[in-house]
Amino acid sequence: MAFNVTLKQSGRQFQVEPDEPVLTAALRQGIGLPYGCKNGACGSCKGTVVSGQIEQGAHSSSALSNDERTRGMALFCCATAQTDLEIDVREVAGVGDIQVRKLPCRVMSIERKADDVVVLKLQLPANERLQYLAGQYLEFVLKDGSRRSYSMATAPHEEGPIELHIRHMPGGKFTDHVFGAMKERDILRFEAPLGTFFLREESDKPIVLLASGTGFAPIKAIVEHAAFKNIGRPMTLYWGARQRKDLYLMELAEQWAKNIPNFRFVPVLSEPDAADGWSGRTGFVHRAVIEDLPDLSGYQVYACGAPVMVESAQRDFTQHHGLPADEFYADSFTSAADLANPV
Score class of each variant (00 low, 15 high):
115 D>S: 10
115 D>M: 13
115 D>C: 07
115 D>R: 07
116 D>G: 03
116 D>C: 07
117 V>I: 14
117 V>P: 10
118 V>R: 13
118 V>P: 02
120 L>N: 03
121 K>N: 15
123 Q>E: 15
123 Q>A: 08
124 L>A: 00
125 P>E: 11
127 N>D: 15
127 N>T: 14
128 E>W: 08
129 R>D: 03
132 Y>W: 11
132 Y>P: 09
132 Y>A: 04
133 L>M: 13
133 L>A: 15
133 L>V: 03
133 L>Q: 08
135 G>F: 05
138 L>P: 05
139 E>S: 07
139 E>H: 08
139 E>K: 07
140 F>A: 00
141 V>S: 06
141 V>F: 10
144 D>P: 07
144 D>A: 05
145 G>M: 02
146 S>H: 11
146 S>A: 11
147 R>I: 04
148 R>Y: 01
148 R>W: 03
151 S>L: 01
151 S>F: 02
151 S>Y: 01
152 M>W: 02
153 A>K: 00
154 T>I: 02
156 P>V: 00
156 P>I: 01
159 E>V: 12
159 E>C: 02
160 G>P: 06
160 G>A: 06
162 I>Q: 08
162 I>F: 03
163 E>I: 05
164 L>I: 00
164 L>Y: 00
166 I>T: 05
167 R>A: 11
167 R>D: 10
168 H>V: 15
169 M>I: 15
170 P>L: 10
170 P>G: 14
170 P>I: 10
172 G>S: 13
172 G>L: 13
172 G>C: 09
173 K>G: 08
174 F>D: 06
174 F>H: 12
175 T>C: 10
175 T>V: 09
175 T>H: 09
175 T>F: 07
176 D>G: 05
177 H>L: 15
177 H>Q: 12
179 F>K: 04
180 G>H: 04
180 G>I: 14
180 G>E: 13
180 G>L: 12
181 A>M: 07
181 A>E: 14
181 A>H: 04
181 A>P: 11
181 A>Q: 10
182 M>G: 01
183 K>D: 11
183 K>W: 09
183 K>I: 08
184 E>G: 09
184 E>D: 14
184 E>A: 12
187 I>Q: 06
188 L>S: 03
189 R>C: 11
191 E>H: 04
192 A>E: 08
193 P>I: 04
193 P>M: 08
193 P>N: 07
194 L>Q: 15
195 G>H: 07
196 T>E: 05
198 F>D: 00
198 F>L: 01
199 L>R: 11
199 L>N: 14
200 R>I: 06
201 E>S: 09
204 D>L: 09
204 D>A: 09
204 D>S: 11
205 K>H: 12
205 K>W: 02
206 P>M: 12
